[in-house]
Design a protein around this nucleic acid. Sequence first.
DNA 1: TGTTAAACAGACTGAACGGTCTGTTTGTAT
DNA 2: ATACAAACAGACCGTTCAGTCTGTTTAACA
Lengths: 202, 202
Amino acid sequence: MPKDGSINRSRILDAAQRLVIENGFAATSVDQVIREAGTSKGAFFHHFDSKLDLGRALTERYVAADIGQLHWAMEATAEVTDPAERAVAFVRCFEDAADEIMSAQSSCLYIAVLTERQLVSNGTADLITHAIETWRADIAALIRAAADERGLDLDADALADHVFVTFEGAFLLSRSTGKPEHMRAQLRVLRRMLAASLGVED
Amino acid sequence: MPKDGSINRSRILDAAQRLVIENGFAATSVDQVIREAGTSKGAFFHHFDSKLDLGRALTERYVAADIGQLHWAMEATAEVTDPAERAVAFVRCFEDAADEIMSAQSSCLYIAVLTERQLVSNGTADLITHAIETWRADIAALIRAAADERGLDLDADALADHVFVTFEGAFLLSRSTGKPEHMRAQLRVLRRMLAASLGVED
DNA sequence: TGTTAAACAGACTGAACGGTCTGTTTGTAT
DNA sequence: ATACAAACAGACCGTTCAGTCTGTTTAACA
């Protein structure tokens, strides 16, 4: 048996993720990735069939981490029994973590992937859609419960999707202005608007 | 004097805009653009110094149209005297126009531009930031007036930015899922949350 | 300790890229 | 008519790209 290739594979993915988020997918070359990862062409094409396959693998890993964050915030607010209050607390989780998130990554991989037509039409975007639907299902369940309890009439699915929308929109706003603090501000706006919509006072 | 080059220049910009929004900037080649525009390399580099210069020109034109839409919606709601109600009506303008917007363009040029590092660091992103700030100023003025009248404590600038955030986030949501109807749904969510925040009843 | 197959290195290739250059067309002003 | 400069066409060039190919290294197991 040979040596463990997963370490090198991870290094390639790490380097590629940084480069793709910063420069875009098409603007990132395989040579750049292997240079940054300190490896070779042979290693790269041993682990990935093609550059598009790298994009898919990159997205797969990113989606898993993304869904991990969803579950983390859900568990962190499990103690809050009232669903409306929990929904607000859920958003507050990310608001509190916003600065940390933005220092770890200046933008989001999803934006780079969804920009590239090749990745959208080869099924990589479907992985992102799966993440979106997972977030939607969990959050909409909270919102539906809150709406039932409080007799509110609202589109739970669309409201749930607005969390994703706020994240991605705020990433773009931060990227354009060069001000990462927009993420925190936008999550705060979302939380306060959500609280107002669900009738939760601050 | 020679013939009018602005027609050809516009055709190049039109073709480039479609291709860049659909495929991304780096993934769009100059040859593709001139083929689609039915012109030549000579014409292209007569009108634009480089591919990056095309990106800048593309963004300049797009920003002008974007600010045009802002002004259109402001004028269309000029009759509404109450600032809070006008802010809600302003969002409703775009909600009503959502399907039309999405059939004209499946995504937003800003996303493609902000994905590309070269365009962010060469100043093209600053043009987008100018659009963002123009929207912010106009909308925040409405919100501040509404907040004053109704004694509300809220971050008018961040709330105003959330319109941009919702647009861009919804573009990405639509792009990933392949469902343009998300734009309308997200603008509806924004309108209803904004109404709840400002104390405007539907 | 020799065998084996995965892991890796790096020179190489053909195609595609952005950009250049030379020459031709176009319309207007004289 | 002719001069002229902007508008345009397309062959061409050096570079970079994704991907290939040949050979070497690595570590578990017989």
